[in-house]
Amino acid sequence: MMEEAGRHAVFIWSAYGATTLIALGLVIRAVLDHRAQRRALARLEAAGAVPPGRKAARG
């Protein structure tokens, strides 16, 4: 059990801490990047930009 981790506890907790930080970093990066692209797409569509396919269908 972990109460017996003793002198190695610092290595164990550092390993789990570093893994958590890297995993959180991946998730935060993914969420922020996705939001940024959605916002950019919404801005372009609001400005009247339409994908080529849709344009052709309307034309």
Binding site: D33, H34, Q37, A40, L41, L44, A49, V50, P51
Partner: peptide
Amino acid sequence: MRTEILRRRVRTLTLLQ
């Protein structure tokens, strides 16, 4: 992959605009 597809849509629309 979903974000990357959106990024490519944004790039295409920016160029068209």
